[in-house]
């Protein structure tokens, strides 16, 4: 599913990732840990088609991201990757179901019924018409999860998905990840929480741009 071969990413003189090699198989759940500045976000950017490597190769679902144009990266990201953010990033003036439909809109075709079904799956059917500020943090994160999954991505990238949640909501989101994993979705979860990291099949720890 994903293969990094001696990937280096430099920002000027600063090398955020140094000669990183990594392989993630389809259906695998990989946890990524590491202190601040260790290169976790850079790794996510590269895998999520938001950036390209300075050297080395990033292969995602057969595509070489290093040689892809900006437009191609957008297309690969749209069709292959689902993103879950620590801060949810819901559009404040759209309600829950519309936030999900936005992902459909940029992918292919907005379908309210399908978006409502996705909300139902994360237990928020009755909150579909609520604006983000009317939802709790846990509910917002579940909308974010539903949005990430609406286009059936092959790879779900989650950046500190439980970082802003209380214990109950954290558990609900993690249970949901368990379901996705059981269904065969590839998961890469960046976390500071060892308990969350332990749920993955494999854990890598980044330190100063290298896999420790």
């Amino acid at each position: 599913m994903l293969k990094l071969e001696s990937v280096t990413k430099a920002y000027g003189q600063l090398r955020a990732l140094k000669e990183v090699s990594l392989q993630v198989d389809a259906g695998e759940w990989l946890s990524v840990m590491g202190p601040s500045g260790s290169g976790k976000t850079t790794l996510m950017n590269l895998v999520g088609c938001l950036d390209t490597p300075t050297s080395g190769k990033v292969l995602l679902d057969g595509y070489d991201l290093g040689t892809a144009t900006g437009r191609e990266l957008t297309r690969i990201r749209r069709e292959t990757v689902g993103l879950i953010f620590q801060r949810f990033h819901l559009i404040p003036h759209l309600n829950a179901v519309e936030n999900i439909m936005v992902a459909q809109y940029y992918h292919s075709l907005p379908d309210e019924r399908e978006a409502l079904a996705a909300l139902e799956r994360v237990g928020l059917a009755e909150r579909a018409k609520h604006l983000p500020h009317q939802l709790s943090g846990g509910e917002q994160q579940r909308v974010c999860v539903a949005r990430a999954l609406i286009n059936y991505p092959k790879l779900v990238l989650a950046d500190e998905p439980t970082g802003n949640l209380d214990e109950d909501n954290e558990q609900r989101v993690l249970d949901f990840f368990g379901q996705l994993h059981a269904e065969g979705t590839t998961l890469i979860v960046v976390t500071h929480d060892p308990k969350v990291a332990a749920l993955g099949e494999r854990l890598i720890v980044l330190d100063h741009g290298r896999i420790a």
Binding site: G70, T74, R77, E79, L83, H89, A103, Y106, H107
Partner: peptide, 15 residues
């Protein structure tokens, strides 16, 4: 942030 999110969700520069 909203623009970045839309692009992360697949919006092109043209969109």
């Amino acid at each position: 942030t909203e623009i970045a999110l839309k692009k992360a969700l697949g919006a092109t520069n043209g969109d």
